[in-house]
Amino acid sequence: MSDTAVTAVAANRRNAPDRRVMPIAAISTSAIAFIGDFFEWFGNLGIFFWRVLRAGLTPPYECRELIRQLDEVGSKSLPLVALAGSAIGVVISLEARYSLSRFGAKSMFPATLVYSVIQVMGPIITGLVVSGRVGAGIGAELASMKVTEQIDAIEASAINPYRLLAATRILACILMLPLLTIAADACGLLTGWFAQALVEPLSFHQFVESGFKGATLNAFLPPTLKTMVYGFIIGLIACFQGMRTRGGAEGVGRAATNSVVLGSLFLMLADVVLVKFILVVFP
């Protein structure tokens, strides 16, 4: 398909030597190159995923490395995620109090806070924080292993690096993100309530009671579990960027940056689809 597009551009050049057409041709050539690169990247990502999946699903299972990664992704991200969740809780609390009192709907405060934190902000903030910390970490670690031939050394030792390095890290991200999200939610609710309680008397018990009144598991479980998809995206892209790195220290830096940038970007794009999906499936 891109072949015909390229020949079309070439034909365009031959038929119209007019100067004014040239920039358009140049732009379309670079656009085609960009689209070509993008599809190539995506294709390679698909092949990479297939390799990891096949390696991860067949024995030997690398349990020791998985546990190490669960600790690396989970426990070590916890303080950061808790902090980010707490901050968001306060922000939402302040905003909600202001807007709700303008519309005279102050009694809605607990429910507003609960729903904004658990359904919207908790998951995405956790995703972005983990993408920054873990995505960059995995990207840089694997990239530096790649450029110093350590990944080749693993392979030469008859160990499948897709199984040992990639499958474990991706699975750790998938398993840990929902748990981290719950932690962020809890911190957010706590600080949100606290910020409110400083201004107006509101016991924690009252807050929880009215915040969760009439709520079903359907309202809270899907938004939390969707973060498994975030984890998958963060882990997959970071491992992919890391393990395809070339070219020394600069390549390592690029891999770390790309892991974060692409991971966060695809995470937010996926969120658009996920939110719609959840609204349709769990009304």
Binding site: M145, E149, Q150, A153, E155, A156, A158
Partner: peptide
Amino acid sequence: IRKKMGFLFQHAALYD
């Protein structure tokens, strides 16, 4: 097959 082979890399490639 690789289990039968020992490979020493030019730059050692130790796991750092």
